[in-house]
Design a binder for these strands. Sequence first.
DNA 1: ATGATATTGCAAATGATTTGCAAAGACATA
DNA 2: TATGTCTTTGCAAATCATTTGCAATATCAT
Lengths: 143, 143
Amino acid sequence: MNIRMNPEEVLKNSGYKLTQQRRAIIEVLRNSGGPYTANEILSLVSDKYSGINFSTIYRNLELLVRLGIVEKLNIADGYCHFKLTGENHHHHIICNKCGEIREIDICPFDELLRNTKLEDLDFEPVEHKFEIYGICSKCKDKK
Amino acid sequence: MNIRMNPEEVLKNSGYKLTQQRRAIIEVLRNSGGPYTANEILSLVSDKYSGINFSTIYRNLELLVRLGIVEKLNIADGYCHFKLTGENHHHHIICNKCGEIREIDICPFDELLRNTKLEDLDFEPVEHKFEIYGICSKCKDKK
DNA sequence: ATGATATTGCAAATGATTTGCAAAGACATA
DNA sequence: TATGTCTTTGCAAATCATTTGCAATATCAT
Ligand SMILES: [Mn+2]
Ligand SMILES: [Mn+2]
Ligand SMILES: [Zn+2]
Ligand SMILES: [Zn+2]
């Protein structure tokens, strides 16, 4: 499964059908930064493909995660957030007040691999999460 | 609010009552590594204080988080996990197969602060999460 | 175009977490 | 130590994101 295949190709290549709904979901994730909640994705997709159902959103997000196309983030706000995996790997800073999610390019994992400390862990890493929570500048100014 | 106060002192100092249930919850968190789900904490506490209710667990965990005594982890398994904040700050490697959570001492945040990259972010960090997901040695051997 | 299968929409179920409310407990005060 | 006030608890019901069963529909190889 070449890493350079696009989501549509991965789907077909894995024996899944390229439905209107799947196209729309991928399209939305591609054109918007994210990460978005299932709710937000439903709204965005509804613009392109009205009538799409919540369970379709959830079922497909799960499939896309399973295929490695989409990444699922468990942010401390009670919802799952989803974004396209891939080219621009990054992490997030999240405001505890307003909930704004901003991307950062700093990846602590690169550093880890460089130090080969992982060898000692007796563990095969697949993915990783790094998030910084705090107060954004807008919210700091407010009080 | 001195960082050297113990949980019981912080509670009283903040005007909250030191109930049997709160004592038991803190006791359990102190004597077990964690992080634990609310469910696991209910079981552990029930040994000490039988009859304790789920809503009491949740309400107090929320309070303890608010007071900075407990840390809430959003691990990608659908549950919230809780552990005592404080002395031994660390992160986790989590097995995608069996769900085992193991502690690691590597903290990417120290590194970040050293590089002063955070100054540019215009953001006041409060806490951070770093987790590595993958396959543990036990699960790797199984297949 | 047809048929075999995968996928969808809908509505109902699930399950962790939250909430309202009356009874019980903590603790400052007398 | 007894009293009174205010907080906290237990219980049961509500919430709400996510999941699931099933019949109807869409996709795609032929
Ligand atoms: Mn990274
Ligand atoms: Mn850390
Ligand atoms: Zn903010
Ligand atoms: Zn494992």
